[in-house]
């Protein structure tokens, strides 16, 4: 990093998280490494995308980044402050600045709350006293910036459409003026038409409010469209970091993701190569590169020695013994 590079808003170093599991009543516990040794800088005002398939650790990473769950190893610094060094009260205070938008707008809002109550809940939790008039103004403002009419304030979540609910989820995340939002598959459960609306809204909010996003998705097409840089994860590890959406992927797994992402144009049909095999179980990771079993470029080296993530001079990072040119 040169001196001219501004300090990142969030800096993640060597982050790992293990989960224990018992496979049966009498068998010994097994350990699942959901996230292994992830290091990542999230620059201010940018959208950093994390893409990967189920079990790649992207949602665990999202929760670790906000200290919603504890790391087994490694650190997360927000504006230089190590989250692990904070006590409960200090962490809660910092949480105003970093918020999360969840995939499922149906379960993210308490069904017994009106939209007004849901939007005021963050203030209550944070102990921010609001007069009735202030509360009214806040609710009106929050609904307005996410493109909802104030007339829905006294409705219950079940009276709203999926898109409206996700807008409420975003409004709630914005209630305490955060600077950093983690967006965990915010459009995955929505129709494509509504998905595009929500992405347009998130883009406008980022511009208007100067927000920084960590955008988690399984959809490489969407990530390429929406993000400034793209982190590709496979079975808990970063396998490639594309410094820009235009960067040409070099890791065979990222290439496979590209090939699997269809385009809305029948003249650009994909030749789907047969990725042999399934994604291995995270309980039982192979010794070398986790992708080796499915990779057509894999050599003996790949099956015995895990490739380290290394950066080229264009800030393009790859963890592969045989990257594609």
């Amino acid at each position: 990093m040169t001196d001219s590079t501004p300090a990142p808003l969030v800096s993640i170093r060597g982050l790992s998280r293990e989960f224990g599991s018992r496979s049966g009543l009498f068998s010994s516990p097994r350990v699942l490494r959901a996230v292994s040794d992830v290091s990542l800088d999230i620059p201010r005002g940018k959208v950093t995308g994390v893409v990967g398939e189920s079990g790649c650790g992207k949602s665990t990473l999202a929760r670790l980044a906000l200290c919603l769950i504890d790391a087994s190893e490694g650190s997360v610094r927000f504006e230089g402050v190590d989250l692990a060094s904070l006590n409960g009260g200090q962490l809660r205070k910092l949480r105003r600045r970093m918020q999360m938008v969840f995939q499922d707008p149906y379960s993210a809002i308490d069904p017994r709350y009106t939209i007004r109550e849901a939007l005021l809940e963050p203030f209550r939790i944070q102990g921010v006293g609001l007069s009735a008039a202030e509360a009214g103004t806040k609710v009106e403002h929050l609904l307005d910036i996410v493109g909802l009419s104030v007339t829905i304030a006294d409705n219950y979540p079940h009276q709203l459409s999926g898109g409206q609910k996700q807008r409420v989820g975003i409004a709630r995340a914005l209630a305490l003026d955060p600077s950093f939002l983690v967006l965990d598959e915010p459009t995955a459960s929505l129709d494509v038409s509504i998905q595009a609306q929500i992405i347009a809204l998130l883009e406008r909010l980022r511009r208007d409010l100067g927000l920084t996003y960590l955008f988690i998705s399984h959809d490489l097409g969407l990530v390429r469209y929406f993000c400034d840089s793209i982190v590709v994860m496979y079975l808990g590890r970063i396998v490639e970091i594309l410094p820009s959406a235009e960067s040409r992927p070099r890791h065979p797994y990222t290439r496979a993701l590209v090939e699997s992402t269809f385009e809305p144009d029948p003249t650009l049909r994909r030749v789907v190569t047969k990725l042999s095999g399934e994604i291995p179980s995270a309980f039982n990771l192979p010794a070398g590169c986790a992708f080796a079993a499915r990779c057509e470029h894999a050599s003996d080296l790949c099956r015995t020695e895990r490739p380290e993530l290394s950066k080229d001079r264009h800030d393009h990072a790859i963890a592969c013994h045989h990257p594609i040119d």
């Binding site: 595009a196 929500i198 992405i199 347009a200 097409g221 469209y225 809305p264």
Partner: peptide, 16 residues
């Protein structure tokens, strides 16, 4: 128009 294409400029994706 709801689906992004490679190289599509951010902010140009329209929903319905």
């Amino acid at each position: 128009g709801c689906i992004s294409r490679p190289g599509q400029v951010r902010g140009s994706l329209k929903g319905i």
